[in-house]
Design a protein around this nucleic acid. Structure first.
Lengths: 351, 351
DNA sequence: AAATCCTCCCAAAGCGCTTTGAGTAATCTT
DNA sequence: AAGATTACTCAAAGCGCTTTGGGAGGATTT
């Protein structure tokens, strides 16, 4: 059924060498010949045998994934979505994964083993922490890698793809402040993860610009679940001087927050404004909330696909990708943001 | 650095053939010689080159995973936990994964491509539905597979690993009924998935044995999130004749249910009993609930590891595993179950 | 003592690709 | 017109393993 290179060469009355070169884009082959080869490939459905390629090139055509299994980092919905993006792109290029569940304390050994095994050409890491030791580790092992996120502190010259979390939450906060909000709460992700640190920073920056300080009591850090969103919001609302607006690190936490707000009898977009970061989770669209959510949007799945693309491009020496990418999140205004209640009354008077 | 077979053979003054046979457990090699080989392997740290093995044997040493990305099936915490088990075992045997995200409508094409690619020796599937078409599909493609769960209807002779969900919830319900409960609610998983169907059946069976009927109003189906657990429980409690006990399909939904119960001012284990199915999620231990939960326990991670073991064993023609396994869940009684309120009053009188 | 059978080991072929090192014909220099 | 380039193409060597088809030597049979 399946043809191999030898048969294909025979069919074309060419040598294997030439066919191989034609396929792999080497320059020393006639354009016309290359076209003939490509045509034959199409007709026969020829697919190079990966095992043979592996053996001949020494490349593994697979990428390593070290899955943190710490109790803090749940392999949650966000991770699954990201993984889907990675896998989508990988499957396209016929790349495999080596999944390595690893407790944080075994991480170094896991990386070492992975690098030594020759089973992967590159690895991917995420869930960056401040001064994350993994970057140095991977550099020392001199195995190509791309990280999703960025460390804070430590080396600066390493390949990453990150969302401009500071910018996203700065933009969001600024919008809220333009609407007159001053007491802005933050339902953030786990405290030690850099994306959460940066989001908080974005909020602080926006506040500082207008001469305000962040009230630490209005910042909660936790895993990004509905439940935590609910509890955090509830606690905010119980305060003597509750916030008039809230930023959520995920539409998942927003779900809980919205519930708490509704339960308190408040109207979103009027009594309280809410902006969530939208990872573009297929089952949780901000436009489907009872009050459509204003969001900072950046697709996790797209990030996964992009990282896979870079990883694979690097392994295949093809395509030229920037080493460091910072994606800007889009601020999309929907109905969950409105003028701050005080100001609303004011403007009512002046009109 | 890394030795290969040739060097190892030279070192031992043996032929590659003999060394290879010694390593792969062929009988025609002297026990003493084999011991020498094994010793040399230990000393040199020899690891066979997987690419070469692939090429020589035609095996891929990797297993395919078709990840459903339907909006109903979130790649949730349960899936991550299962995957960790799979991966743990796979990494042990140096097996790779081919992750295939696929929408349900593309499933067949995905399987077909996967089977034709020769990139995997076997595939794994889960989230069984009633009359699940995938079993026939995989049989037709004659690619080895193991399913997590069981279909209902359709062929019966296929390899699976399942938890006795009917039995688990039967046992749980029976315990409740022995405690005097008669109105038992069920917070179940998605309605179309077979594990949910079976759990409901287990409850019905226990009720029927004592001449009771299941009140359909006391059964809710949904994705197993905290939020859904909360809402379901809340709705149950609002009913004119609320249940005295509830079964939860996951400790995740139990989390929400417990919250709703507390909020209603009821005491778990006294006013209302609760039994949850415990998948042994590391971050959600039933014994850590404010009132430790009575559970039916069966580790998802262990199931993942077991399936990987069977898949790999089958590929390597080693080890003899049963084709069909039905794991019995343990019923572990903790503090969340107690006598039904009515009966409690009665016994109060009689004592 | 010859014939047969094990037991243990080996040389060599082959898996399907990439890559090295040449080689041929056509084109360009001088 | 001879030598130097250029543009294509090829044969063959490997990559590191498994597996086929023997084959030597000792033990067992007849």
């Amino acid at each position: 059924m399946a043809v191999n290179l030898k048969q294909l060469a025979e069919l074309l009355s060419l040598s294997q060498t030439t066919v191989s070169r034609a396929l792999n884009g080497y320059p020393e082959v006639n354009a016309e010949t290359r076209a003939r080869v490509l045509e034959a490939v199409r007709e026969t459905g020829y697919r190079p045998n990966r095992a043979a390629q592996r053996l001949a090139t020494g490349k593994a055509f697979s990428i390593g994934l070290v899955m943190p299994i710490a109790s803090g980092i749940d392999s949650d919905i966000h991770f699954g979505e990201f993984l889907a993006g990675l896998a989508e792109e990988a499957v396209e290029h016929d790349f495999h994964f080596v999944l390595n569940p690893s407790a944080p304390e075994d991480e170094e050994a896991t990386f070492r083993r992975l690098a030594a095994s020759g089973n992967v050409d590159a690895v991917f890491i995420a869930y960056m922490r401040a001064n994350d030791p993994r970057i140095e580790m991977l550099k020392a092992l001199s195995i190509p890698f791309v990280v999703h996120g960025r460390s804070i502190g430590g080396p600066r010259d390493y390949p990453y793809l990150d969302v401009d979390n500071t910018g996203a939450f700065y933009d969001a906060a600024r919008l809220l402040m333009q609407l007159g909000h001053q007491r802005i709460a933050l339902i953030n992700g786990p405290e030690h993860l850099t994306f959460a640190i940066r989001r908080k920073k974005g909020l602080m920056r926006a506040l500082a610009e207008k001469g305000f300080n962040l009230d630490e009591a209005l910042v909660h850090h936790s895993a990004m679940t509905d439940e935590h969103g609910y509890r955090s919001m509830q606690r905010f609302l119980k305060r003597p001087n509750p916030p008039t607006a809230v930023l959520c690190s995920s539409t998942v936490t927003a779900l809980g927050a919205v519930r708490a707000i509704n339960q308190a009898g408040l109207v979103i977009g009027t009594d309280i404004s809410l902006i969530a970061h939208d990872d573009v989770l297929p089952m949780l669209k901000p436009e489907n909330f009872s009050v459509p959510l204003t969001t900072t949007r950046s697709s996790l799945r797209a990030a996964g696909a992009r990282i896979a693309k870079r990883l694979i491009g690097g392994i295949l020496d093809q395509g030229d990708y920037p080493e460091q990418e910072l994606w800007r999140a889009e601020l999309i205004v929907r109905a969950s943001t409105g003028p701050a209640p005080d100001r609303q009354r004011n403007s009512g008077k002046t009109v």
